[in-house]
Design a protein around this nucleic acid. Structure first.
Lengths: 344, 344
DNA sequence: CTGAAAGCGCTTACAG
DNA sequence: CTGAAAGCGCTTACAG
């Protein structure tokens, strides 16, 4: 048998090689193997060497589950996002990963919109993840979430859901203060024909608040003041282009998120709309890309570090028993901070 | 005891509640609990209901390790990146996550540069991860990697390392064709004073190739033709600013990556250097942000989907025994594609 | 320094 | 429909 074809399975029987196989190969007992392989004391150097050689020869790999069963396994958080290519999620994942590492926890990543061909049902993906982790944190599709009651099966923290599930812990964002601040800023700088780019045909809470604000302030509004598209920069381009056509007098626009807002900036540049001179733009999220574009994007920033910290605190509470797993709602609420750069 | 203070541990003894506790609580045997909780047949509805009620009451959660031990656990890939806030990594993570999901594998995320205060030793982080996953894929700090010989302890795929470890499988990038194409493009469009922005004081392979190219073509070069900085957009701004000062005649510049290149574009805009009229810019990576800025960034693109696919193929091979775990080098090599947009 | 025993928490046959 | 037995692969005491 050619050496580099050596298999990690014992060729004699077609099953993974275990500690017993190594023990037999080395002519020792299995606890001696444990000791030798884990650098524990009370093994003679020669025995240890013999065991290590045998393990190497057989391509032995300890079974993680067995180790976990006896030793106590670490906490694993399943982090669920809608689309990792929206920079908001990696920035959050980065924060979560760092904070988790501080507790010696691990983060299992689940991107629900992977650019893969044959990815199965989202429901199936989530259930499979739920079986492999100790808690779920993230953004969950409303329909699967409510119909499957995942929060009842596993400690879960729902991030920034439009509709808060009373059964699940959540970190939610009260958009009111932030959106109010953004719109106030528009008005304070003399803008009165304010548009909105949203992400769904059905108005999001952000859009509803925007409408209410315009009405409250007696500002102009019509269905032409609004447009919606995908939450991508291409969507932002498309929506901004449409909005510019149907509402040419628009002098300010609030955009559902920064990625779309950056698209809107491109669209405006292309159409010759000067930002902020002709039209001011404020995005939402506070992403780093906002600082990379010209003009730099003003935005409603959300603190990802704080969001991740809240989520892990809630998980910790549920895991330790200090917090109920479901039932009375446990909720942390955050608000945006208006960050003014060049676009407004 | 207040209901919402119910603990996930059996209050009577201070240990996690197990299937036996549930069985006792429900007055049945443990295999009946298994059946009821896993929706298996051969349980009467009333018994199942009683068991589920007991499990809920005790906040029972099956032990994943025990389930994994008996049922066979799924493959977990530890994905190690240098810094998740560089968009290259999330785009790769997204691809990897999707392809892994297709195989019903999971991806555990490990960001070595988390924005967290107390993150411990990188070495420690990697070793801890290595114990919790079946294989390692990603970018590893050269020093830890070579000194700890992690590749000998766990199947590992090293991505795009400058120095290929002969002990580990790897997906490497042959930069020569791409960089040659980029520089050829500069020359073909009449540029002869070509600069380079790199990321380390020590010249990267990209920089070495750039130098060799200039020499080969008899083009001007001096130490003033080069600058280096952090691989962030701020680093790009700083390096481009410096380069513009020290090499004002520069009419083209190759940048270590797209994030820095976007920074360079900002710096040039600020300094009144028109791109591409005064100075052409080509970045490396092919990130989406290159399309968001103005002018759009020309770049050497690497196919992240293909990279992820190669990595998982190699892991699969090592796990199944078709590929050696170490020893004879297993290597896949990729090349960049020159994508011309507006900046060059 | 090394080995025989017991047990981690679950599930999968196998009896009733 | 329900339960007693055996075993998954490892480690942690406990004897020698």
């Amino acid at each position: 048998m050619i050496q580099h074809m050596a298999s990690p399975r014992d060729p004699r029987r077609n099953r993974p090689v275990t500690i017993v196989d190594v023990a037999n190969e080395a002519g020792v007992s299995r606890q001696t193997v444990t000791r030798a392989l884990n650098n524990m004391p009370d093994v003679s150097a020669s025995t240890a060497a013999r065991v290590i050689a045998a393990a190497t020869r057989l391509n032995y790999r300890p079974n993680r589950a067995a180790q976990g069963l006896v030793g106590g396994q670490s906490v694993v958080i399943g982090f669920v996002v809608e689309d990792l290519t929206n920079p908001f999620y990696p920035e959050l994942a980065s924060a979560l990963s760092g904070l988790a590492a501080d507790r010696d926890w691990n983060v299992m990543l689940c991107d629900l919109a992977p650019p893969s061909h044959g990815h199965g049902d989202v429901r199936e993906t989530l259930h499979s993840l739920a079986q492999r982790v100790d808690a779920l944190v993230g953004y969950f599709p409303e329909d699967v979430w409510s119909s499957d009651q995942l929060a009842r099966r596993i400690p879960s923290v729902v991030l920034d859901a439009d509709q808060v599930d009373p059964e699940a812990a959540s970190v939610s964002i009260d958009i009111a203060p932030g959106v109010e601040a953004a719109l106030d800023h528009f008005v304070a700088s003399g803008r009165t024909r304010i548009g909105m780019i949203d992400c769904f045909p059905d108005p999001s809470p952000r859009r509803l608040f925007y409408r209410a604000y315009l009405e409250r302030k007696g500002l102009a509004w019509s269905s032409q003041s609004e447009a919606w598209a995908d939450t991508t920069h291409l969507g932002g381009i498309a929506a901004a282009t449409r909005l510019h056509e149907q509402y040419a007098e628009m002098d300010a626009v609030l955009v559902f998120n920064d990625v779309m807002a950056v698209g809107a900036l491109k669209s405006f540049a292309h159409a010759g709309v000067r930002v902020p001179a002709d039209c001011a733009v404020i995005g939402i999220d506070g992403l780093e890309i906002g600082q990379l574009v010209t003009p730099e994007l003003s935005t409603l920033e959300i603190d990802r570090g704080a969001m991740a910290r809240h989520a892990l605190d809630l998980v910790d509470g549920m895991l330790s028993g200090a917090l109920p797993l479901h039932g009375p709602l446990v909720q942390r609420t955050m608000t945006h901070t208006l960050v003014l750069r060049q676009s407004a």
